[in-house]
Design a protein around this nucleic acid. Structure first.
Lengths: 205, 205
DNA sequence: GTCTATACTCTGATAGAC
DNA sequence: GTCTATCAGAGTATAGAC
């Protein structure tokens, strides 16, 4: 692990963590959490199972840490995408495309966060759902802001709009095909246009 | 198994099949396919693992059969919901609510069909995706009919509309809470209104 | 068709040397 | 921190009696 250059200790540890989690995420996305063995994860990191155990006491604890990192990735990616954009409707478009890009193309971890929550049980699952909710709050805030500015029609339930909108986007990860007829941006823009045409208070566009 | 009344042989066999699959579907929905053991499935059917094996040579083959039945359930439920309805927009509303009701409340099998495809690999997964596609064709036909009748705006890609719409609906199963602020019909009607307002050629509604 | 009993495999986790 | 070696448990599937 430490043969990937020497930086400050904390940074190396951080990059090691990300390296392990990225390898695990790729496997989890491909095979699912349950059908992926700790042996495979270790192999993908050029380690042996015993060494992996030094970092994570259990397979589940690794998944939880992975999801934590995924949330950070998603939050910062969307925040970055909308930063500095004034037009609220353009902000929405960029947010949608950022979410989609990250989920389908950018980060296996975000995919795992959204699709592998069923592998956790009890308290751990609760924690993870809280993580997911925290990410969705970012969207809730964005939509709330649009509503406050009067951009979204008053009679639209922005809570449901967020749930349904993100659902439609998340599901894209189950069917999207790079070699298919649509680009990822086609899909994102379609969703954006759908929402725009349905709830925005400017029909004369 | 056969202590549930005697009807015609074929009917009994059929009802046995459905009984076993329903029990398995409930477990799969709750725990996931991988974390459910054949022992548990057998127990839920008042059998022992060996007996279950008489019906299905492997756990995977049971899942495949389950998905096959799920497709039939979904197709016939939606067909029934829209049968005899003339107004195409009302047809859409009923179809949406039927899909939602079946997925969230009605049939564990449909849930499993939609969420447990990742448990299958290789050829089996392909077959199952074909099943899912066949169900979606029902929706494709409905939307195509709306487009042909001129109810849907010409510039709307009905292929994407179907994928995004069903995605939004499917995802509901991951967050819907019976004791939450929305009824299932609230959610279905919201999606319907969203689509109606975005793509239907009668803004003066 | 269902039961009993079991074979065989794999897995997550551990212990302890280096 | 990483390695070697290994354990205890669980899981699917099978064989064969009834």
């Amino acid at each position: 692990m430490s043969n990937r250059g020497k930086r400050q200790a904390a940074t190396v540890a951080q990059s090691d963590r990300e390296f392990v989690l990225a390898a695990a995420a790729s496997l989890f996305r491909d095979q699912g959490f349950d059908r992926t063995t700790v042996k495979e994860i270790a192999q993908a990191c050029d380690m042996l199972p015993g060494s992996l155990h030094y970092r994570y006491p259990s397979k589940e604890s690794l998944l939880v840490d992975l999801m934590r990192l995924a949330l950070e990735q998603a939050s910062s990616a969307v925040s970055r995408a909308i930063a500095g954009v004034d037009d609220p409707i353009e902000q929405l478009r960029r947010g949608i495309n950022a979410h989609l890009d990250l989920l389908v193309d950018g980060s296996d971890m975000v995919y795992v966060l959204l699709f592998e929550w069923r592998s956790l049980r009890g308290q751990t699952r609760k924690e993870m759902i809280e993580l997911r909710d925290r990410y969705e709050e970012l969207w809730a805030a964005m939509l709330q802001s649009l509503a406050t500015q009067g951009v979204i029609r008053q009679d639209v339930d922005i809570h449901l709009l967020r749930l349904i909108g993100l659902g439609g986007l998340n599901w894209v990860a189950t069917w999207f095909d790079k070699s298919g007829p649509y680009s990822l941006e086609d899909v994102g823009n379609f969703v954006w246009r759908l929402i725009r045409d349905a709830v925005i208070t400017e029909p004369g566009r």
